[in-house]
Design a protein around this nucleic acid. Structure first.
Lengths: 188, 188
DNA sequence: CAAGATTGAACGGTCAATCTTT
DNA sequence: AAAGATTGACCGTTCAATCTTG
């Protein structure tokens, strides 16, 4: 393959610019968001693995279980909360169960279903890991933000999540409150 | 025993970083950030794949190449920009090259290095995909945000990214400017 | 048949080892 | 020896197919 015709490289000079402009500051906000996420989660994941042999996803699953009434959750509900596919969550629970951090039980009210239950070992592992994790969020995410910034982000990105959720290909999550009366969902 | 260690989580907690409370609104901001990212990127990736057979990472790589002077970039520089490991980028470029969207050339000034070069086919694929992508960012991310929110996010998350970068385990990456005098990095 | 969960295959990424060039 | 890129082995996730139960 030969290279392109010379096409002098004045940056930004030959942009097609149909539709939204790629250099729009609004788009840059999106890119800043993306990059911040990539860098911060990478750090948090590293720290969790190094200090507690837990991935961020595993930590998150333990946390969701800890918060659920009875410390148990149906697989599909858990999948929705940690934002993973069903099979993803099956395998995640496989790993955690192999470490004794969760147990599996058939759902009493619907024999098709299964529940994941946090074990005492899981609780204490979570408690230990949460110190690392919260410290990491503080250090890598929150310190760069003023109180007002944090407030804005919390308020505004909650809306973004639901916005992106509505109209998604895979339908609504009308799960929950089948096995458990359960807490209302956080945001969605 | 309802939740983890019983914390008297008094609302209106604006106390500075200390023993972090899991129910702290500051932590909730982090969780909103995480969830928004997961949902939005999933949508964008789906749309790009469905309409242009391109993953988000592939799109990003094409975009970085298109913006670079000469539409070419050293592998390691590209890895830094798309936030992937070196081997990750090698494989990404393998895929794009198999589709004829990029080419590979040895770096003229340093025979150890390789450069990825955007082909004409890559350019037009990118141009087509960018319509989908920018539309998606608009729909799934920006619409939920006021102009002021967008500004806040852009300003503030740029800081977060560099914050998380500084002090990372793997040292500084001041690569670049060996083969190409190059454009200044966007967004440190 | 529809829905919940699991399994097998494949994908996309990382880490550690390797090869080449400086 | 150090640095850039690639390769091999492996890991975590998704998709499609399957099994089971409502």
């Amino acid at each position: 393959m030969s290279t392109l015709p010379p096409q002098p490289s004045a940056p930004g000079a030959d942009r097609p610019a149909r539709g939204p402009d790629p250099d729009d500051p609004r788009i840059e906000a999106w890119r800043a968001f993306l990059e911040a996420h990539a860098r911060v989660t990478r750090r948090l994941d590293e720290e969790l693995r190094a200090e507690h042999e837990l991935s961020l996803a595993e930590y998150d699953a333990l946390l969701q279980l800890a918060r659920a009434p009875g410390r148990r959750l149906r697989m599909s509900v858990l999948a929705d909360r940690v934002i993973l596919s069903r099979s993803g969550v099956t395998r995640l629970i496989d790993r955690l169960a192999a470490d004794g951090l969760v147990g599996r039980e058939p759902c009493p009210s619907d024999a098709r279903g299964a529940e994941a239950i946090l074990t005492p070992a899981g609780r204490s592992r979570l408690a230990a890991a949460s110190r690392t994790h919260l410290r990491g969020i503080e250090r890598h995410f929150l310190t760069a933000l003023s109180q007002a910034d944090v407030e804005t982000i919390g308020r505004v990105l909650g809306g973004v999540a639901t916005q992106a959720c509505a109209g998604a290909v895979s339908g609504e999550d009308r799960a929950a409150s089948d096995c458990e009366p359960g807490e209302p969902r956080r945001r969605a």
